[in-house]
Amino acid sequence: MESNLITEDKQKNKLEKALEILKTMASKPSGLIGLTIVLFHVILALISPYIAPYDYKAISPNTMLLAPSAEHWFGTDSLGRDVFTRTILGGRTALTVTFFGSLIALLWGGLLGIFCGLVGGKIDDVVMRVVDAFLSIPWILAMLLIVSLLGTSTEVLIPALGFFYGKGIVRVARAATHDVIAKDFIVSARARGHSNMSIIWNEIIPNVRDAILVEGAMRWSWMLLGFSSLSFLGFGVSPPTPDWGLMISNARGLMSFAYWSVIAPIVGLSSLIIGINLTADAFAKALGIDRSTKAPV
């Protein structure tokens, strides 16, 4: 982490470094598999509205619970909707919600963590107590409470997920800041008379960025898990929206004879979660951060 101190030609270095990290990630089979899966899902999410063969909300009594065939690759569900269409569009929902959710989590978690690490003392103590208290409420209870009181739209879900999954990032950012803050280059920046803002921006953020990004990548997969669990329980996005958790929960009752409508979203969701996990692991390893001894909090 310490190696990426700021140099003069950092613009050029940044791109090179990013490429290098990607190369390191892809050099191991697990990282390559993870990257491929994530890339596949992202591309599919981008093009799915254009390649979807049917209307995702078109209900038709004539095509109920058809087995997979040439017309309906993954069969149809209990309302006669094409499972293939809904599956590829489901990835779009999941990726959009969790991407923006992770972004919010990274921003507020990272900034608050850095702030706490910097100021220390009483403020730090109080904030960390509150974060600990939030950590001890099971995520599912908190999320359910928020969405049941505020409603289940994406406008509520994204900030709620972002808020809730950011609290773990606070800890990581704070710990990383603590490590950096005692280093000589901070002291010398202070001695040069740099302002606090300039120190945060030029010295601290570049040095804690890796740890926070790795944490954010892990949070992304947990957020996806949390989001789809919410949908599955009926507290996520509302019905006509194509969503994997929702599809699994709807098709579950009929899976004794129409297993196809439950298998397709299961494969979609599992592969994306595994892909993100493998990628995050490879990302952490490429940056030299060991996550294997961390608990899933």
């Binding site: 669990s229 958790g245 699994i248 899976m255 297993y259 299961i266 969701l269 979660i273 595994i274």
Partner: peptide, 22 residues
């Protein structure tokens, strides 16, 4: 372990019902 760790509970539970019970 990576598989059973990353797959959401409701999926592994649903698959268990599908495979073992049905």
């Amino acid at each position: 372990t990576i598989f059973s760790m990353t797959i959401p509970e409701f999926i592994s539970a649903t698959l268990l019902i599908l495979i073992v019970a049905i």
